[in-house]
Amino acid sequence: MFAEERQQLIVELVAASGRASVTDLAERFSITTETVRRDLAALEAAGSVRRVHGGAVSPERISTTEESILERTVLRPSEKTRIAAAALALIPEDRSGSILIDAGSTTEALAGMLAARSAAGTTGTGAGSNGADAELVVITHALPIAARLSGETGIALHLLGGKVRGLTQAAVGQSTVEAAGRIRPDIAFIGTNGISAAFGLSTPDPEEAAVKAAFVRSARRIVVLADSSKLDAETLVQFASLKDLDTVITNSNPSPALAAALSDAGVEVVVA
């Protein structure tokens, strides 16, 4: 096999799985690890892959890469719908308690489902111990999520303020972090740009990371919504370790390394 043919296959493998290790590539093509590294160097120079310790990842997994919320909304919609539906099942239908919904496209899908459930009257009759006017307290710092839930029957919406970051349409900054420190929601539904065994949860922007870290500290239960593109990914700023989490809802089984790390940290994994 010519080097050009092998390198094209490497690009296809990395694109399909998100990453490839030097040792796996050497075994697959029956070549030395030194040859693999030369191939990866050539492919990185061409912008086809990005080299990392032990192998290569897709160039889309650069630690500072971040799509806007509008771009993310149209990516992997069926996967996000399944994840959001699994998360919705964790929210009490009797309008009891409080939840926090972090910014993100999958969490926005959850907000849409919660709004639809409320409009359909399936959040409960309001009767019983919670009273006729019972409302689920929903806290968010994301403008699109607030817009979806504003005015819905059975939902008491609280919007955390701060400087709005255009890319995510979410409030960030010191005032947002301080506000998060003054609440104690029952469940926080958290979005992430990456979740890995070694680095935990991460996001490219430091201000977003500070807000997410404050949310993780504030809630009684942490539920992470992460589609398969986020698994084994590492972005610039860590905001939580795996041991900070209670549940991860995703759409495919984690890699063996990540699955073992989540199990060791006592994290429940729900595959939707």
Rank of each mutant, 00 (worst) to 15 (best):
V211A: 06
L231S: 02
D205N: 11
T235Q: 10
S241N: 13
I249Y: 04
G191W: 00
K243L: 14
V211P: 02
K230N: 02
D246R: 05
P204C: 01
K243M: 12
K243N: 14
A219E: 04
L225S: 00
S228H: 14
I195A: 01
K212Y: 02
G161I: 08
L149T: 04
R221F: 03
R165P: 04
G154Y: 04
T235Y: 01
T176C: 13
T203F: 01
T168A: 14
G194P: 03
G161Q: 12
A233S: 11
L245V: 06
G173V: 07
S202C: 05
A213D: 05
S175G: 09
L160M: 12
A171K: 06
K212H: 11
T153W: 14
V224C: 03
K163P: 11
T250R: 01
G191L: 03
R182G: 13
S241P: 05
A226L: 06
S150N: 14
A213R: 12
R221E: 12
A179V: 06
R148Q: 15
A156D: 14
E207Q: 15
A180L: 15
R220W: 12
P185E: 07
I222A: 09
V177C: 08
S229E: 12
K243G: 11
S228Q: 11
A188N: 02
L225V: 03
L236C: 10
A240T: 00
S175R: 14
R148C: 12
S196L: 04
L225Y: 03
A188T: 01
V216M: 04
V211N: 03
L159M: 13
F239P: 02
I249L: 12
D244I: 07
A170L: 11
A198I: 08
G181F: 04
